[in-house]
Amino acid sequence: MVELQQELRTYRAQLPGMLDRHDGEYVVIKGDQTMHYSPTYAAALEWAYQTFGLDQFFVKKVAVDQDVAHFTRDLGPCRP
């Protein structure tokens, strides 16, 4: 997640303001810019892929408490 440190810093810095208007929604962040809010993770992800393609972006739920879940699309082939 080293690649997304700027986006994570942006999220943390802007979280207090986002909570007032977007608590429970999902935010799309690219670099130091908050780009979009969606009501669901799937909608935020769809918007981000349509907008940025395979370029780096960050999607996170706007909430005080966060469940931790990480995944990557850069997985190698599965081996038995």
Rank of each mutant, 00 (worst) to 15 (best):
Y49C: 11
P16Y: 01
V68K: 08
G31P: 04
H22L: 06
V27Y: 00
E25I: 02
V28F: 04
G17F: 02
C78N: 09
Q6F: 05
D74P: 01
K30T: 09
L75E: 15
D67G: 09
V68Y: 11
H36V: 03
E3G: 10
V62D: 00
Q56F: 04
T34A: 08
A69M: 12
G24K: 06
H22P: 00
K60S: 09
V59Q: 05
A42P: 01
R73H: 12
V2P: 05
P77Y: 06
Y37I: 06
Y37G: 02
T10P: 04
F57P: 02
G17S: 02
D20M: 11
Y49V: 15
R21W: 08
R12F: 06
M1T: 10
E25T: 13
Q33W: 06
V68E: 09
E25S: 14
A13P: 02
L8C: 07
M1P: 09
Y37E: 01
K60R: 15
P39W: 07
V59T: 05
I29N: 02
A13D: 15
H36D: 02
V2T: 12
T34I: 15
Y37K: 05
S38H: 04
T10W: 04
K61F: 04
V2W: 06
Q33H: 10
A48L: 01
V59E: 00
P39G: 12
P80I: 05
L15G: 03
L19V: 07
D32T: 14
V28R: 00
E25Q: 15
L19W: 07
A43T: 03
T72Q: 03
H70K: 10
A42F: 06
D67R: 13
Q14G: 06
V59H: 01
L45K: 08
Q14N: 14
T34S: 07
G31F: 01
H36S: 00
L19S: 06
P39R: 15
D67Q: 11
G76Q: 12
L8K: 13
Q66L: 13
Q66N: 09
A43Q: 09
D32V: 05
V27W: 03
R12W: 07
Y49F: 10
M35S: 01
E3A: 13
W47Q: 00
G17V: 02
L45Q: 10
H36M: 05
L4H: 12
Q56H: 10
A48F: 00
H22F: 15
L54N: 13
R9Q: 14
F71T: 13
L19Y: 06
Y11S: 02
G24I: 06
G76E: 13
L4K: 08
Q6C: 07
Q50V: 05
V68S: 08
G53R: 03
Y41H: 11
E46R: 13
F71D: 15
A42G: 09
A42K: 09
V68R: 10
E46P: 02
A44P: 01
P39L: 13
M35Q: 11
F71V: 09
G53Q: 04
K61N: 03
V2S: 10
L54S: 15
E3Y: 11
L15Q: 03
P77F: 07
D23Y: 07
Q33M: 08
R73N: 11
T51A: 15
P16Q: 01
Q5K: 12
Y41L: 15
Q5N: 09
L75M: 14
R21F: 13
V64A: 14
Q56N: 12
H70A: 11
Q50C: 05
C78I: 08
L75G: 07
Y37F: 15
C78F: 10
L54W: 11
